[in-house]
Computed example of a mutant assay.
Amino acid sequence: MKPIANTQKRFAIVYDADRVTDPEPQMFSPEHWKAQYAVRGSAPGRGSALFLDTPMGAAVLRRYYRGGWPARFSRDRYLFTGWERTRAWVEFRLLARLFADGLPVPAPWAGYADRSGLAYRCALLMQRLPGTVTLDALIAGQKAGPALFARVGVCIRRFHEAGVHHADLNVRNVLVDEPGGRVYLVDFDRGRYRPGSPVDGKANLRRLRRSLQKHWPMARHPEMGSAWKALLDGYHG
């Protein structure tokens, strides 16, 4: 991976020169890819992630959108304090470090931000992990057994031992390679990486448990209890 920064007056792009050549702002426009008939689907949530077929390979384009009460004032704009502090740039740099250190994350390809006055918008283009589905999709399809949850626990422990804090660990940010069973974590917006400083994962695990209970309430699915135990066994194993 060879990160390069291209900073202009109104926009800036940081990208992996080993993967991307001559990046342009249109690469980060959903309308551009729709016009190319390159959109192959979208991720659940706020509608901010598109699955693309690009000349560089299968990709995910995620634009950054606000949630909760801040979205009432601005859906996709943030206060500008410097290109390297924009959310896409920060996540690109973080993913690049995690990927280089061998952690199971998608490879970042390019981060983009454009500025208007004191506000900016941004987007991230990254590798689409082949053959993967979200943990919540496996739960919905009744394909998530104790063995899978144990692997999820092992994966989360690996990140925590490496010094990685995930800011929003939920069932949609855990991907599983169905053919091979490998587990990945995605969406590291606002995440942190401090190599050599293991993370106390209690808050992450509580967040994931709340997400599981939302998608898989124990009142209707008592098997969630055994699944969570398997995850903790994998995590502490």
Rank of each mutant, 00 (worst) to 15 (best):
A107C: 12
Y112P: 07
A140Q: 15
S226P: 11
L205G: 01
R157C: 08
R128V: 00
L231F: 02
R172G: 15
G225Q: 14
H166F: 00
Q213W: 11
P106V: 12
D233N: 12
V133G: 10
G163A: 12
A167K: 10
L135A: 00
R121A: 03
E178Y: 06
R207W: 02
C122W: 01
L95W: 10
K214A: 11
V174D: 13
L135H: 03
D189K: 15
G191K: 04
C155R: 05
R172Y: 14
W228C: 10
V171M: 10
D177K: 05
P195R: 13
W109K: 07
H221F: 10
R220Q: 13
R151I: 03
V164S: 01
V171S: 11
D200P: 11
L148M: 06
R192T: 15
M126T: 04
D101V: 03
R172F: 09
P195N: 12
N173G: 12
G180L: 14
D189C: 14
H165K: 09
L118V: 01
L94T: 12
A119T: 04
R206P: 07
G131M: 05
V199P: 04
K229W: 04
K229Y: 09
D233V: 08
I139W: 13
P179H: 05
M126V: 03
E223F: 00
L95D: 08
P217W: 06
A119W: 02
R220M: 12
G111D: 11
C122N: 08
N170V: 00
M224L: 15
G234I: 06
V174F: 07
L129W: 02
R97W: 01
P179Q: 06
Q142W: 09
R128F: 00
L148P: 11
G111Y: 13
I156A: 13
S116P: 04
D177A: 08
R210L: 12
A230V: 02
N173D: 09
K229F: 04
L118A: 04
L231M: 06
L208I: 02
K143E: 15
R209V: 00
R93H: 14
G201Y: 02
R194M: 10
L175D: 07
P198I: 00
M126Y: 01
V199M: 01
C122R: 08
A137R: 14
A144R: 05
E161K: 07
V105P: 04
L232I: 00
L148Q: 06
V171W: 06
C155H: 01
G196Y: 13
R210G: 12
G117S: 03
G163N: 04
G145H: 06
D114P: 10
H165T: 14
